[in-house]
């Protein structure tokens, strides 16, 4: 099957800053794909190269098997939802949505009809005559979505689509975007710095750091099997133990990640079961979360591990308070080895 998007050894530098360092990437048709990373990691540059707002210094970009490296944005079958929505303030909502048809020379009656249908799709049927500034943030977001979809692109690009929304709206829009993507069956590529958003919406996630892809995997694999120290630290809430600390704890010179809920908490003198990795430490603080609590345990000068402890049932008689001496233990196979 021809990939919807393909990047071949794409490189882009701004002066001496390498924004994207020889990135290769293949996105399948119909995939919901996330570009995840902190700011400056190259994820937005990657999106802008796919949209055509920027050109790579070297490498190639293919859309649906066709080399579009030198194709201007207006000739690419790709549309974008901008972070600031970029709605035109001097046009009504309906005119904004119909803009893509207008510049393609489609007659006014058909434009109006299709724009109305698009607005219905995003549940803004009655808002066509309003101006963008008369809408709420969430509504503007949906107008931007309708406007980007009216040209029936094969690929929809979304730049931090939920960044400007408040928490409740963000959760709603997550479901809405996911539902829309499944109904339309087109490829969605979205940029985010929020790992929760990437994990909950995407089929696959590319984690960017310093212009490179650190890991490209399904959300489940990314969460359970991070490959590098960076990914383990950025995705999920695992403890990342660096090489030196790992040497002391396990005797092996290899960084690893261990999730808080997989660490057992034992009383100071209590021996762990056979084969467990174990160590002693001192409780730094305890945060009570209702169903569980979260402790931070200092095991040596430089290493503090987070431990999740269920508040229901097992091991309930162990009293843990700040300053208490405890033992920690985990099964060696639960520790995920990492590359630096």
């Amino acid at each position: 099957m021809t990939p919807a998007i393909e990047l071949r050894a794409t490189r882009r530098a701004f002066g001496s800053v390498v924004a994207l360092d020889s990135v290769s990437l293949t996105i399948a048709p119909g995939e919901f794909f996330a570009l995840l990373g902190p700011s400056g990691s190259g994820k937005t540059t990657c999106l802008r190269l796919i949209a055509g707002f920027d050109q790579p210094d070297s490498g190639a970009i293919l859309l649906d098997g066709e080399d579009v490296t030198n194709t201007p944005p207006f000739a690419r079958n790709v549309n974008t939802v901008f972070q600031d929505y970029a709605l035109f303030p001097h046009m009504t909502v309906a005119e904004n949505v119909a803009y893509g048809l207008r510049v393609r020379g489609i007659a006014a009656p058909e434009r109006a009809q299709r724009a109305a249908a698009m607005l219905d799709l995003v549940r803004l049927g009655e808002f066509g005559a309003r101006r963008p500034h008369q809408l709420s943030g969430g509504q503007r977001q949906r107008v931007a979505l309708a406007r980007a979809l009216i040209n029936q692109p094969k690929v929809l690009l979304l730049d931090e689509p939920l960044g400007a929304l408040d928490l409740k709206l963000r959760e709603e829009m997550q479901l809405e975007l996911k539902g829309l993507q499944q109904r339309l069956g087109i490829t969605f590529v979205f940029v985010t710095h929020d790992q929760g958003e990437a994990l909950s919406m995407a089929d696959r996630v590319a984690v960017f750091s310093q212009g490179r892809i650190e890991q490209l995997d399904t959300p489940r694999e990314l969460y359970n099997r991070p490959q590098t120290v960076f990914v383990a630290g950025f995705v999920g809430s695992a403890n990342v133990v660096g090489r030196e600390a790992a040497q002391i704890l396990t005797g092996r010179d290899r960084a690893f990640a261990i999730r808080p809920e997989l660490i057992d908490l034992l009383a100071a003198g209590e021996p762990a079961a056979d084969g467990y990795v174990q160590c002693a430490g001192e409780v730094v603080d305890v945060l009570y979360h209702g169903a569980s609590s979260r402790l931070r345990v200092k095991v040596d000068e430089r290493t503090t591990l987070a431990v999740a402890r269920s508040e229901s049932g097992d091991g309930g008689d162990l009293v843990v308070a700040t300053g208490a001496r405890v033992r920690l233990a985990w099964r060696p196979e639960h520790a995920v080895p990492l590359q630096d």
Binding site: A51, G52, F53, P72, P73, F74, V78, N79, T80, F82, Q83, D84, A86, F88, Y99, G100, V103, R104, R147, A148, N151
Partner: peptide, 13 residues
């Protein structure tokens, strides 16, 4: 905002 020009190009203008 530069994004307005980009949005316009993006939509085929």
């Amino acid at each position: 905002p530069p994004s307005w020009v980009e949005a316009s190009m993006d939509l085929g203008a």
